[in-house]
Amino acid sequence: MSLADDLTTPVEGDEDKTPYSERGPAPVDVVAGFGFWLFLLSDIVMFSAFFAAYAVLVDHTAGGPDGLKLFNRTYVLIETMCLLLSSFTCGLCSLAIERRDARGTYLWAAATVLLGATFLGLELSEFSRMIADGAGPTRSAFLSAFFTLVGTHGLHVTLGLLWFVSMMAQVATLGFRPIVVRRLLCLTLFWHALDIVWIGVFTIVYLGARW
């Protein structure tokens, strides 16, 4: 079945044979999820502009240190593993939410926050080491682009962590009511999107530093 057919004719095996045009608005859950998916894509488009800036400015080091001198691959690999594992625990958290299992939700959210905080701590210590070595964002165009791109990703991780904490407070006080579950769904999607951006960061910024 082509995409065009899919948009106009009901899906096979679907009990509801009414055409889409006569079905009325989609359920709130679907609208919220789709809207948040669009937001995430637009966020990724914003990141693509920072990636483009980095790719253009990567060789403009103004006589300062280049990526090969600054980046430590082992360090980045540990950061990456933290983020990948946190995506996994975030997935387990969303399974616990679907079961309406409060204890499981807290447990896996705590694991996710812990891994995310570890990632953030490693990144901040890397940043402070670079700035202490005189390779701060004002040193060269390359470093400005680097700190903007990686810093914006770090900012997203920070916001995600704060969001996790506030959602856990909402689960504790409001329970799994529909609005809370929708917010939790958006949060887990946000967290997975951070991982996708990080794949671009470690491939282009850290592993691309050899060329």
Binding site: V11, A26, P27, D29, V30, G91, L92, L95
Partner: peptide, 18 residues
């Protein structure tokens, strides 16, 4: 919910999948 509308990341996961 009808299969015709799906939300990203919702109701399709399993531990094995993750």
């Amino acid at each position: 919910t009808a299969k015709a509308h799906r939300t990203p990341g919702k109701g399709h996961g399993s531990v094995a999948g993750y």
